[in-house]
Simulated scan of single mutants.
Amino acid sequence: MSTTTLDPERQRTTTVRASVEKPRRKGVFSGGALTTLTWVLALIFFAPVAWMVMTSFKQENVAASNPPAFFFEPTLDQYKAVISSDAGPYFLNSLIATGVSTLLVILLAIPASYALSIRPVKRTNDVLFFFISTKMLPVVAVIMPIYVISGQLRALDSIWTLVILYTAMNLPIAVWMMRSFFQEVPGEVLEAASMDGAGLIKTLRSVLIPMVTPGIAATALICVIFSWNEFFFALNLTAAKAATVPVFLMSQMTSEGLFLAQLSAASVLASLPVVLAGWLAQKQLVRGLSMGAVK
């Protein structure tokens, strides 16, 4: 009785083919289940925003009803009340503080991030740690010296005080973000620009900045969000002249009571500028936030 022995190479091929053809085990979540779970979580997080928008179209008695009213006659009275109030100066102050501080942050962060990424020095890591360490200090711990210094300089209730503070607040984050974007620029591009006789300013203006424009847009949008929503400095360092939108929203809570519908309408109007800015820059934002993610 003879025994047939398989060729070793053929046996190895058969084993590999069997392992490949073996059905893969599905993970805990399949594609459809993971998509459904993502949508459920997104709707849960979006529910308060949707409720705020819906409340802004109610009358005050309907907004304060218990149980809540889901079916009602929509009205624009709350938006008319907010627009006809003295909300204009608050929005103008927020626009100035946010726009000017974001512009200053970008102008300062571009050369700083270039120096820390393209031409690093011996103490680059120490400089980066110093930048980010300024974000570890609670804002409430520095409000007293800032208030005293601003008072001595007669800079209280000044929009330019907020511009300086917002610039200092957002600059560390901007430097860290833009440094990762500059590190994605191939070294060969800089070498080619140097061989063509381009100096530092021309290299920045004509080569680097066009390549990292999505990153600059993403950084600017994050600075806009942080500055527009900032409340603590605006509350403690401003009064009547330089108060911003978050202070205006707090002023809707009076001793006469909490007007939910009007507060919701004011909150929707206060959120629109940032939402529109994010919607207009969404392509640049997605590209910018993904530039430094994968090497």
Results as ranks from 00 to 15, higher is better:
Arg123Cys: 02
Ala174Val: 13
Phe71His: 05
Phe129His: 04
Met169Trp: 14
Thr134Arg: 02
Ala141Leu: 05
Thr167Asn: 05
Ala87Gly: 08
Tyr79Asn: 04
Ser85Glu: 01
Val140Leu: 03
Ser113Asn: 11
Ile159Cys: 01
Pro120Val: 05
Ser56Phe: 03
Ala50Arg: 03
Ile164Pro: 00
Asn125Phe: 10
Met178Gln: 14
Lys122Val: 07
Val140Ala: 07
Phe182Ile: 15
Pro68Ala: 10
Lys135His: 14
Pro48Tyr: 05
Tyr147Ala: 04
Pro145Ala: 03
Tyr79Glu: 03
Thr102Val: 15
Lys58Cys: 12
Val100Arg: 00
Phe131Asp: 08
Phe91Val: 06
Ile83Phe: 11
Pro67Thr: 06
Pro68Gly: 12
Met54Gln: 11
Val148Gln: 08
Asp157Ile: 08
Ile110Asn: 13
Phe181Ala: 11
Val175His: 01
Tyr166Val: 01
Lys122Gly: 04
Val53Glu: 04
Lys58Val: 10
Ala87Gln: 10
Met52Gln: 05
Val163Arg: 00
Gln152Met: 10
Ala155Gly: 05
Phe71Val: 14
Thr167Asp: 06
Pro138Asn: 04
Met169Val: 08
Phe181Arg: 02
Val142Arg: 06
Phe57Pro: 07
Thr55Val: 10
Ile118Ser: 12
Arg119Pro: 03
Gly88Cys: 04
Ile132Lys: 05
Ala168Gln: 05
Tyr114Phe: 14
Met136Thr: 14
Ile96Gly: 00
Ile143Leu: 09
Ile110Arg: 10
Ile173Phe: 15
Pro172Ser: 07
Val62Ile: 14
Ile118Thr: 13
Ile173Met: 15
Ile164Trp: 00
Lys122Pro: 00
Tyr114Gln: 12
Ile118Met: 12
Val53Gly: 03
Ser65Arg: 06
Val148Ala: 09
Ser133Ile: 14
Ser56Trp: 02
Met52Lys: 04
Asp126Asn: 07
Ala64Asp: 09
Pro120Asp: 03
Thr102Gly: 06
Val148Trp: 07
Gly151Ala: 14
Ala50Leu: 11
Ala63Trp: 00
Ala109His: 03
Ile83Val: 15
Phe182Gly: 13
Asn61Ala: 15
Met54Thr: 10
Pro48Met: 08
Phe70Arg: 01
